[in-house]
Write a protein that binds this DNA or RNA. Sequence first.
DNA 1: TTGAAAGCGCTAACAT
DNA 2: ATGTTAGCGCTTTCAA
Lengths: 338, 338
Amino acid sequence: MTTIKDIAKVAGVSITTVSRALNGYSDVNEKTRQKIIEIAKQLNYSPNTLARGLVMNKSKTIGLLVSGLTRESAKDNFTFEVLAGVNQYVSEVDYDMVLFSTTSTKQREKTYTQLCRERRVDGAILQGIRSDDPYLQEVVESDIPCVLIDIPIESETVGYVTTDNVLGAKKAVEHLISLGHKNIAMINGYSYAFVSEQRLKGFKEALLEAGLPIHEEWIADGEFREDNAEREALRLLTNYPHITAFFCASDLMALGVIKAAKRLGKRIPDDVAIIGYDDIILASYATPPLSTIAQNKFAMGYEAAKLLIHMLEGKATSHVKILETELKIRESTVKNYD
Amino acid sequence: MTTIKDIAKVAGVSITTVSRALNGYSDVNEKTRQKIIEIAKQLNYSPNTLARGLVMNKSKTIGLLVSGLTRESAKDNFTFEVLAGVNQYVSEVDYDMVLFSTTSTKQREKTYTQLCRERRVDGAILQGIRSDDPYLQEVVESDIPCVLIDIPIESETVGYVTTDNVLGAKKAVEHLISLGHKNIAMINGYSYAFVSEQRLKGFKEALLEAGLPIHEEWIADGEFREDNAEREALRLLTNYPHITAFFCASDLMALGVIKAAKRLGKRIPDDVAIIGYDDIILASYATPPLSTIAQNKFAMGYEAAKLLIHMLEGKATSHVKILETELKIRESTVKNYD
DNA sequence: TTGAAAGCGCTAACAT
DNA sequence: ATGTTAGCGCTTTCAA
């Protein structure tokens, strides 16, 4: 593998000059530079980023820490789209991305912080980490710059990108209310997700503002899982037949609710209307197609990467980015909608 | 950031001893080792993998080269599942994975080979690369060990994992034939995908073996795209009303065919039966649920990583891994199947 | 405009 | 069992 030393030898200059020439410094004779560049090309030279990173003390690499990168999690393509967005920005600015997942056995042995420090990543993006994850605390308190997705923590070295989940939930519930629904249940995700809290808040606010009562017993925990949501919806629909609509904190759970409704022979949306959250790909392919609050997951990843790298380069004016959500009306709430 | 030098100073030994102690060499006094480990812990030491990689000339990092990591490609969660599988194995053996995607602008400036060499990855896995990609040739001919997914190239440094696509296609078509279909069309992917060739071959073999004629004009190119497949199916069904079944080289295209059939008022599977390939998540959620040839994409990633790392460590007996596929019968071919 | 020398943090001969 | 030394490939003072 060619090194700048080899180039220096061939060019008859010092390695310093080669380094300067290749890095575009101005204090090098233009002819010398051309010659060096030419030789580098001929010798098929590639800079060794390990060596460069060692001396410069930065690697131009960011870590993407995700949890639960399993076979099952593919259904909910959230993580994947975020990843694609991160990747997009990162490669635009010539950084690289290394993926740290915590599904593995490794997760218990090494903390996120250790992973980041060993690989000398310049910063990290955290996605899908539960807010009660002990390692979250650790990495946030470390000196590693990081950007969190959907966890609102802010400090000198920490920023986040999220959407307005209270507003999103309100939009969903107001949509149901505008359709005449008065008896609306909610299937929420687990409580250690920040978004769950927020969506619950939005749910209640919407009811309150419409002068509707809040039935705490109509709020169930589906843990963001399709099967749990199905079970909970089955229970609610059986025990409280007055319920005519469901707001679910995720599309996957909404799919579970659809199954439950079908099993009970209920027509959707006539007997029971269902709205989800996220706009995963399955949503538009479901039967009936699922109304939902769409989040631009790709954009979340893209913006997270952008924010992080701006922070790294000291040109971030704010550490927070809030993205918009959009109400998508489909046939799980409105018949023959098109 | 603590270095072994710091530890050496505190422990009153040389840095060599620290290095040896921390790396589990036997020629170091057990007491000394314990002391060093203790100090390392106290000082919150993390090894610098850049420095280690520089001197050892290996980074314990592999590159995952994918193409088309876009918002749209999320539908076909193939890449994502492969990635999850790669990640799983890689983290089991304490390697890291860096993701190189070629969607970006960067793709035209730097070749895969350059990307790999700059980051000093020990090896690479290539997924979703077209067989006519000029850079594919380059990386395969380089000295970088690599494992290809679904491209059968083998050499000293190159291996691959794939499934038996001829057999898979045959299984699909034989299934249709067993249902009594005689007029079977095929929507294939683009020709510069190895799998397309193979699946076409399997398609023809199955027909031949059943004594059925091959109508070349019933074979269309859907370029692996849903919309193209829909258009082609529309055309075929209109021009050749005898057709009663479709074999599609991907599920995404099969979904397009379903749309086309519906638009023409055809009942599925009564008027036209449809079978896909891949078993993407959407398949089971489609209306009707899609019969398909399932590939274990997670396993493909996992096995690719395993093969690559075995190759790197010189303990690969073979450079090829062929995985099984499975016929999944759903309602797009058999009514009320359950 | 160029070069010499030091050093980033680590491993690995080669002593001792 | 431990230390000395050299060096991985690169950037960066400092001098010339």
